[in-house]
Amino acid sequence: MKNGEVYAPEYLGKQDVLVIDNKIAQIGAVSDKILEVDLEIEVINAEGCIIMPGIIDPHVHLIGGGGEGGFATRTPEIQLSDIVRSGITTVVGCLGTDGTTRHMTSLLAKARGLEEEGISTYIYTGNYHVPTPTITSSVKDDLIIVDKVIGAGEIALSDSRSAQPSVHEIAKLVAEARVGGLLSGKAGVTHFHIGPGKQRLQFLHQIMEEYEIPAAKIYCTHITRSPELMNDAIALAKKGAFVDMTAASDTGEWFGYYIENGGDLQQLTFSSDGNGSLPVFDEHGKLMGIGVASTYTLYEQFVATVLERGFTLEEVIPVVTSNTATALHLTKKGRLTQGNDADILLLEKDSLAIKHVFAKGKQMVKNGEVIIKGTFE
């Protein structure tokens, strides 16, 4: 890739990027003598383009979610093209409210299928409830034994749909995920769904104060429900936990609020909640309506935060790439550096429109069109 402006995510200026097989081999001036080598070589003119890492989406309902309005409101499985057209090259799958008709083994199979189709995939073990469903007998064993499992989640707190667990039950689950991560060399995080309830993040603050739980093993999402919840999340992030904004029409506004109120940008990520349900409840907990989240919203809000809200690429790119890789211990993801996986986006400089998407060195989107689709698309 010649003459693109590289954000790695830090700005490196105009550079060439050499990809060999599925890895980044070099960033910097690449000699034209490489064209003389007796190998199949493709040269992409990246003039006028931004080159950045592929987006990592840490919260996707790969096999669907929902069901809060009955069986007809169960959302569908995601398709490969929905993911790659959004500039996403790595996803983390999860279950939601339903851990009965949605199964961990089905989520694992879907993740493996998407990996075979070209992207990188991981999953959390569990769902909203505590005790939470697993593939083996425990959260710890899942992390140690199952390759794709990198943490527990999404565990619901401050929500009428949660199992209303005690602080001690939550602490035990987080500790189990932590030990599983230690023994398997994985993140071992617990990913929390935070609802609109009045307790907000009280349990998570309490766990860090009363138990021997490293703050970085706590990762909570849906923090943009109210200013009070956002303030609570800012305080939690200052203690070393990771916090996540679910992409929506007001993400850029919340991003600004987070910064203005002293939020630690290194502890913040964005996610899509892709193919999860978007239920609307009244003040009595009655379901009033339901929709389906899209992974494309994550890309749209990344762009809007830069172009409409005026934040810089160096401020926003880490929130969808390197920060997420750090939170989830994905050491070969989220950064453009020699030896890392060749997950790369090329965006038009002025509009940030997606031009090319590469996942592990394989081109998935070319000139804005998806060229690799799922098996049944």
Rank of each mutant, 00 (worst) to 15 (best):
residue 1 M to F: 08
residue 5 E to P: 00
residue 7 Y to V: 00
residue 11 Y to G: 08
residue 13 G to F: 13
residue 15 Q to H: 14
residue 22 N to Q: 15
residue 27 I to W: 11
residue 31 S to V: 05
residue 32 D to N: 13
residue 32 D to F: 12
residue 46 A to L: 05
residue 51 I to Y: 09
residue 51 I to R: 00
residue 65 G to P: 01
residue 65 G to N: 05
residue 68 E to R: 01
residue 69 G to D: 14
residue 69 G to R: 13
residue 76 P to R: 07
residue 80 L to R: 02
residue 86 S to G: 15
residue 87 G to E: 15
residue 93 G to K: 01
residue 98 D to S: 04
residue 112 R to K: 08
residue 115 E to M: 09
residue 115 E to S: 10
residue 120 S to T: 11
residue 124 Y to Q: 05
residue 134 T to S: 06
residue 134 T to N: 04
residue 136 T to K: 03
residue 139 V to T: 05
residue 141 D to K: 15
residue 143 L to F: 11
residue 145 I to G: 01
residue 146 V to S: 10
residue 147 D to V: 02
residue 154 E to F: 15
residue 157 L to K: 02
residue 158 S to N: 14
residue 165 P to E: 14
residue 169 E to I: 07
residue 174 V to P: 06
residue 177 A to Q: 08
residue 179 V to C: 11
residue 185 G to D: 10
residue 191 H to T: 11
residue 191 H to K: 15
residue 192 F to W: 13
residue 192 F to E: 05
residue 193 H to V: 14
residue 194 I to Q: 04
residue 194 I to G: 01
residue 197 G to S: 10
residue 213 I to S: 05
residue 214 P to G: 10
residue 217 K to C: 12
residue 222 H to K: 12
residue 239 K to W: 08
residue 247 A to D: 04
residue 247 A to H: 01
residue 248 A to N: 09
residue 256 G to E: 06
residue 269 T to Y: 05
residue 275 N to S: 10
residue 288 M to K: 14
residue 291 G to E: 13
residue 299 Y to G: 00
residue 300 E to A: 08
residue 306 V to W: 07
residue 309 R to E: 10
residue 331 T to Y: 08
residue 333 K to G: 03
residue 338 Q to P: 02
residue 342 A to C: 08
residue 359 A to H: 02
residue 362 K to C: 02
residue 374 G to S: 07
